[in-house]
């Protein structure tokens, strides 16, 4: 009798996840395997030819733009992720205080992240406008005679996009930090206060350690997301000037959909996957040293 109920429940369970399972097989796992196979081929959507590891060989040894795109993306990640994490954490700390109108502040700070990425890119295009942009107007007012030409200057275009990435600090990452902060038992702070801890010491010895699983999660997701940065460069700079903002995924997109080198682009996708896998594995290894999970035996 009981086995019959279990079997029926299992049947309905599987039936209900069938759409997801079919979607996963058809639209995720299938394309992934196809792209793996394609990465060993030359495929321009008309002719398919097996070329072995030639795509990988060219990518790693004879394509300066691959390295340029990787360098740009790594530089972007190096700055955008720590700055973004710090910004989100600071904002979460501010919004975790018991002040009047807290709900309003939280809504206001979250709002920018609701704006579609394309609209945000267009908005920042205006902010960075060398002549009329609000940023350069402010810099001129502050006495800078020749402020940077931001998106039109190969030296400033990448920093400009890093600055722009901070637009998202009030989004999902901040919410996760906020949830983490609210999960820290008040008794820890009270105990620290009895021990004579000040505000900084409470943050340093209570808040930060308790938040390390959240920081770790946001760091891993941040690096993965940052390596896939695309929209800002696609809309605002087109990868320029002089390839200064040619990000990895933008270059991959161009290879696939402008040059129709589907095999080559697939190889790029798998190289990116391996890079991210490597980074994530390293982070998990390092995490043992600094991430504190409550309830885990020390």
């Amino acid at each position: 009798m009981r086995r019959g109920i279990e079997r029926r429940q299992a049947f309905w369970g599987f039936l209900f996840i069938t759409p997801w399972l079919a979607g996963f097989l058809l639209f995720t796992l299938g394309p992934m395997l196809a792209s793996l196979a394609l990465s060993f081929c030359r495929y321009d959507m008309a002719r398919l030819q097996f070329v072995g590891a030639a795509n990988y060989e060219r990518l790693l040894t004879r394509d300066p733009l691959f390295w340029r795109a990787l360098w740009n993306t790594a530089t972007y990640t190096l700055f955008a992720v720590p700055l973004g994490l710090t910004g989100s954490l600071l904002l979460a700390l501010l919004l975790n205080r018991n002040v009047r109108g807290l709900a309003l502040y939280r809504t206001l700070y979250y709002l920018p992240s609701l704006i579609p990425a394309v609209a945000t890119a267009l908005l920042w295009n205006w902010v960075f406008n060398a002549n009329f942009g609000i940023l350069n107007q402010a810099l001129r007012a502050a006495g800078m005679a020749r402020p940077p030409e931001w998106l039109q200057d190969p030296h400033w275009a990448l920093p400009a996009l890093i600055v722009m990435s901070l637009w998202g600090i009030g989004g999902g990452r901040m919410i996760i930090f906020l949830a983490g902060l609210q999960g820290i038992p008040q008794s820890y702070y009270e105990a620290a206060a009895i021990d004579g801890a000040g505000r900084w010491q409470k943050f340093r010895h209570v808040t930060l350690p308790m938040l390390t699983p959240i920081i770790f999660f946001n760091l891993v997701m941040g690096i993965i997301g940052s390596f896939q940065v695309f929209t800002a460069a696609y809309i605002m700079t087109g990868g320029g000037p002089a390839n200064a903002t040619l990000f990895y995924v933008l270059y991959l997109f161009r290879q696939a959909f402008e040059q129709l080198r589907m095999g080559y682009a697939s190889a790029m996708a798998w190289v990116l996957f391996l890079i991210l896998l490597g980074f994530t594995a390293i982070q998990f290894r390092q995490a043992r040293r600094w991430v504190y999970y409550e309830g885990e035996p020390q």
């Binding site: 205006w126 406008n129 060398a130 002549n131 009329f132 030409e149 998106l151 039109q152 200057d153 000037p241």
Partner: peptide, 10 residues
């Protein structure tokens, strides 16, 4: 115009 001067089709 330079690209900076002519950004956003000034």
């Amino acid at each position: 115009p330079t690209p900076a001067e002519n950004a956003l089709s000034a």
